[in-house]
């Protein structure tokens, strides 16, 4: 447990020291939203609800893939070996997942604020929309962290990351879009229990599998 907390702390400190990476991610989110805003020729009020919703999740998906890819290639191979001698592989993956959840929550809410400011608010049940962002951050970071670990072993890691992660993330993404669609239509929480439970279930499976499988990755 202590190990995990130390590792998370280390990740935060590293991120804080290399501010350019964090700033890059923030700018990435803001500029993609802005590109969408410009592309729709500023007539944002005429956007259909489904387009509005899908666009938001695609922006979040791409910023998630972009920011989580870094989680293993950011540090040099030598330093990875150093961690290997110090820490359990299980605590490494859990700390990375928790750190990425934090990062994704931050980026998700930032994206939400910018998106709402530029593209207008079309969600009627805002708390539920926020819940879908929280669940999305959980799902994206838990499933992408292990994939980032796999991709970091290859030479063309960013290309491989996209290929490997999109099919894996699609079940989560479809559930998220349905949940946030319900939120946009202003349905009550009770009508979306199915989606929420399925998302939680997928997240749990994915985290458990990352916990079990990561030691095999770490060895190579």
């Amino acid at each position: 447990m202590k190990e995990i907390i130390h590792l998370i702390k280390k990740d935060f400190i590293l991120e804080w020291r290399q501010k350019y990476a964090l700033n890059g991610m923030i700018l990435y989110v803001i500029s993609t939203v802005f590109v969408c805003y410009i592309s729709f020729k500023l007539k944002v009020s005429s956007i259909e609800k489904i387009t509005w919703n899908t666009l938001f999740w695609i922006i979040l998906l791409f910023s998630a893939v972009n920011s989580i890819t870094k989680s293993f290639i950011q540090e040099k191979a030598g330093r990875q070996i150093y961690y290997f001698t110090l820490a359990n592989p299980q605590s490494v993956i859990i700390s990375k997942i928790i750190y990425n959840i934090g990062l994704m929550l931050f980026l998700g809410f930032l994206g939400f604020v910018v998106y709402f400011a530029l593209m207008g608010n079309q969600a009627e049940n805002v708390p539920m929309f926020l819940l879908s962002i929280v669940l999305g951050a959980l799902g994206f970071s838990s499933s992408l962290t292990l994939i980032a670990g796999i991709a970091s072993k290859a030479d063309n890691s960013s290309g491989l990351m996209a290929v490997l992660s999109f099919p894996v993330i699609l079940p989560i993404l479809t559930m998220l879009i349905r949940l946030s669609k319900n939120a946009m239509d202003g349905l009550a929480f009770s009508s979306s229990y199915d989606e929420i439970i399925t998302l939680m279930g997928i997240d749990l499976i994915v985290i458990a599998l990352s916990y079990v499988l990561f030691p095999y990755l770490w060895k190579s």
Partner: peptide, 24 residues
């Protein structure tokens, strides 16, 4: 080793897609 890890991981996310989502 990496292919085996991905195979297991992908299978676990593929199953809910085939068995749960179409029923919803």
């Amino acid at each position: 080793r990496l292919a085996a890890v991905y195979n297991i991981f992908a299978f676990a996310t593929f199953m809910p897609l085939v068995w749960i989502l179409p029923r919803l």
